[in-house]
């Protein structure tokens, strides 16, 4: 009984550290894609994190599609717009092939990877050397997962809404 009381009394002191409802309120951001030429990437801020919006070239898409899922360290798509068990094929990482939208947080320890670097031409995280390919999938280094794809939708051909 005393233990139950102690836990009940302790909980407010623990839970106060969790994000408040204000912080949790899902924010969303709209991104205009028209100024982003093929081969470019822009970074916008969403929920305190950087968001990568990359306009992939046909070459990058072909390279990414050529990779078999069995070769990947993380075989799951990690795409908030698809079911959890979706395989990490190139098609399942995007909505439209030429637009790759990712949360720019390295799945190792949270650094922001640098674009167009590393052996796979995607991203290189300078903190601990994780390398991602042109679909944002982890290929080499200590990161355990592919870069996450946030929930987003196309409002028009040149405009997306994230969140």
């Amino acid at each position: 009984m005393a233990a139950v009381g102690a836990v009940a009394a302790a909980w407010p002191f623990i839970d106060q550290m969790n994000p408040s409802a204000a912080a949790l309120a899902l924010s969303s951001v709209e991104v205009d894609l028209s100024p982003v030429a093929a081969g470019q990437q822009i970074v916008v801020k969403w929920r305190g994190h950087p968001l990568f919006v990359r306009h992939r070239t046909p070459k990058e898409i072909t390279e990414s599609k050529a990779v078999a899922v069995s070769e990947l360290p993380d075989p799951l798509a990690r795409n908030a717009n698809k079911p959890d068990n979706t395989p990490a094929t190139d098609d399942d990482r995007v909505i439209k092939s030429e637009w790759l939208i990712l949360i720019g947080v390295c799945t190792h320890l949270g650094c922001t990877p640098t674009g167009f670097e590393g052996d796979y031409g995607g991203w290189l995280c300078h903190c601990h050397g994780s390398q991602y390919d042109t679909a944002g999938r982890i290929r080499k280094g200590p990161a355990p997962q592919n870069l996450a794809v946030p929930p987003y939708a196309f409002l028009s051909d040149t405009r997306i809404k994230v969140g």
């Binding site: 912080a23 305190g48 320890l109």
Partner: peptide, 24 residues
């Protein structure tokens, strides 16, 4: 703080609890 996210199952919740937000 992301070191804690390595803990299986509860790791990401601990990280969020430490941050009090989606990020530092």
């Amino acid at each position: 703080t992301n070191l804690f996210s390595a803990i299986p199952v509860v790791g990401s919740h601990i990280a969020t609890w430490l941050w009090g937000d989606f990020a530092v």
